[in-house]
Design a protein around this nucleic acid. Structure first.
Lengths: 146, 146
DNA sequence: TCTTTATGGACAAGCCGCTTGTCCAAAGGA
DNA sequence: TCCTTTGGACAAGCGGCTTGTCCATAAAGA
């Protein structure tokens, strides 16, 4: 009867595990200077056409916080700033080779982390699970939550 | 067949929304001085027999961080420290009336946040969803993840 | 029992991610 | 052309967390 409460706990617990799993695996692949929060930035930047202000909106933080994050990612060689073609104030953010490699590693890590769950449920139920979750999840950026 | 990647994104997005929803609702009920992270502490303390060190382990932070959190919750009137019956060093943490009220508000908020999802899927599929998620979720404390 | 080691908690200093506040130059609408 | 908006930078500060140290009590070993 208290499915609702159980559901909340499960989603929270699951996402916690997932983040931890992905982070650990990505670090093991050599990206030890990246932290979970960086992944959310990569997600936006890899979509293209992102300025620092866009990134701030995507992450739900202030421009200054985003600028600081970008500065760090640039310094570590994952991101580069390019002049914006139509706006002399702005700079376009782009992933470097390392940045791309890191996002690929993260994708791989996510798949690996999910794989055992997929097996545990079987293809069919897992597919249904994804379908149902997709129906529930409101649109909007994925961002760190707490 | 990139269900696995989709699943990761969905779980992350869903938990983000959930945290945000719960936090907003709890704040609206008058608990504006509580933040999402506090909920995880309440969860452990309400289970009973918790010392500050237990709490630290539960949250995955250092003793000092936990002590600081406890200090804050005590100052705000949600938690009280009692002498430990069998250990003169330790202090047992317990929720005050306010603390209990806050946890109830959080539970209610969680149910309200989930309700529309439950309706969207229908009782049957929602139940199946909870069952499946429960099979996936490894045991262990629920803690802030990033 | 006495000695050693582990543990709950407190104090201090410091880091880091984020905030608010301010400013400037470029862009864009009236 | 003026006025407002917006991308970005600089500065200061806060809060949550860390490491490091210490003490008193507990628990374990001789």
């Amino acid at each position: 009867m208290d499915d609702a409460l159980a559901f909340s706990s499960l989603v929270l617990a699951l996402s916690g595990h997932l983040v931890q799993e992905i982070h650990t695996r990505v670090a093991r692949e050599g990206f030890e200077d990246l932290r979970p929060a960086h992944g959310f930035a990569f997600a936006r930047i890899s979509r293209g056409d992102a300025t620092t202000a866009d990134l701030a909106a995507h992450l739900g933080v202030t421009k200054q916080a985003a600028a600081q994050l970008v500065e760090e990612l640039v310094r570590k060689g994952y991101v580069e700033r390019r002049p914006h073609p139509r706006d002399a104030r702005a700079k376009l953010l782009a992933l470097t080779g390392s940045g791309l490699a890191a996002t690929r590693a993260a994708d791989r890590a996510a798949r690996e982390a999910v794989a055992p769950w997929r097996e545990a449920l079987g293809e069919e139920r897992f597919g249904a699970l994804v379908t149902d979750l997709a129906r529930l999840t409101p649109p909007g950026p994925i961002r760190p939550a707490w």
